[in-house]
């Protein structure tokens, strides 16, 4: 089965942790993840400026590691990211901002990438709210 997984809440929301555990289970069961799409507050998971207390799980870091290990296509909605302060080098230069903070392994792109993923996939599983 081919999945698109969308992440809609920030990295400290329980739903973003559940999204990661679900994605791990998808691959463990031999299914395919076409794309992980980060939208709304989910884009904050792709910031490399997150600092998590030592006694807490760093879900953003775990997402990044999972994406790298499995060479997943991880797309962050560019409009949602810009308005929440998540910029890659190109956007930081374009808007005259000092820092690019999009973590490695993620790409900024448009909502068209969500629709493109859906056309290739068989299931969309969205994780939002709490």
């Amino acid at each position: 089965m081919k999945f698109v997984i969308s992440v809609l809440s920030s990295s400290h929301a329980p739903s973003t942790r559940r999204a990661l555990r679900f994605a791990q289970a998808v691959l463990a069961a031999g299914h395919e993840i076409i794309r992980v799409f980060f939208y709304q507050d989910g884009v904050l998971t792709a910031s490399n400026n997150l600092v998590v207390a030592q006694d807490q799980q760093d879900i953003a870091q775990q997402w990044q590691a999972f994406i790298a290990e499995n060479e997943l296509d991880a797309v962050v909605c560019i409009a949602a990211a810009l308005r929440r302060g998540v910029l890659d080098q190109t956007e930081a230069q374009r808007y005259g901002r000092e820092a690019a903070n999009l973590a490695e392994g993620y790409q900024l792109s448009g909502l068209g990438q969500l629709h493109d993923g859906l056309q290739q996939a068989e299931r969309l599983i969205s994780f939002g709210g709490q």
């Binding site: 709304q40 409009a79 949602a80 448009g110 909502l111 068209g112 969500l114 629709h115 493109d116």
Partner: peptide, 28 residues
């Protein structure tokens, strides 16, 4: 795609971001 939009229009950006998903589908 059936988009179910559940957020009030002026309670933050959520309603506008839902609508953007629809506009993107239309564009393609």
């Amino acid at each position: 795609v059936l988009l179910i939009s559940r957020q009030a229009p002026w309670a933050g950006i959520a309603a506008a971001e839902a609508l953007d998903i629809a506009l993107a589908a239309g564009a393609f």
